[in-house]
């Protein structure tokens, strides 16, 4: 039988270690990620970090580059997918790894954020795998008991 696998990312903040948990749900061909957040902003941020964690090793040494990103979508689920597609684009085209963000505004249809990236350096960072895309398959952001959660599949 297919099993879930618990994952965590340890992020070295200035004075503390922050841990982000996510789960790899069973999926035969690709990678299915399940995670949560106490707010919608945290859900978006955690998802971007989880996708990055699947692409590159956790050690994120390097100078931070700040970029403003604004995305519009017809609804919240699509906005989430487009946000993660932006994370892939920045990595594969500009070599920028998502490292965190200050989300200035987030509605069901728009996100505006100041995103911190670290430039990928093969001497400092290990590429784990190539993610082709974040798929639309069965993506539904849910809120239960004050916690947001989402399950999504990335094509590898």
């Amino acid at each position: 039988m297919l099993q879930s696998e618990r994952m965590h990312i340890l992020i070295n903040m200035n004075r503390s270690i922050k841990k982000i948990n996510y789960t790899l749900e069973p999926h035969t061909a690709d990678i299915c990620i399940k995670l949560g957040g106490t707010t919608l902003k945290k859900l978006f941020d955690n998802a971007a970090k989880a996708v990055t964690d699947q692409m590159v090793s956790a050690g994120k040494k390097g100078q931070k580059i700040m970029n403003d990103i604004a995305i519009i979508a017809p609804d919240k689920d699509l906005l989430f997918i487009y946000w993660l597609q932006e994370v892939l684009y920045q990595f594969y085209v500009h070599g920028l790894m998502y490292a965190g963000s200050k989300i200035k505004s987030l509605s069901n249809t728009t996100i505006k954020a100041e995103v911190a990236f670290i430039r990928f350096d093969p001497k400092e960072h290990d590429a784990k795998r190539e993610i082709k895309a974040v798929t639309y398959h069965d993506v539904h952001i849910e809120k239960k008991g004050g916690i947001y959660s989402v399950r999504f599949v990335v094509d590898i």
Partner: peptide, 11 residues
């Protein structure tokens, strides 16, 4: 055609 997920294969 795959039988195992990638995580399963690694385990």
């Amino acid at each position: 055609g795959r039988l195992m997920s990638r995580g399963q294969a690694v385990r």
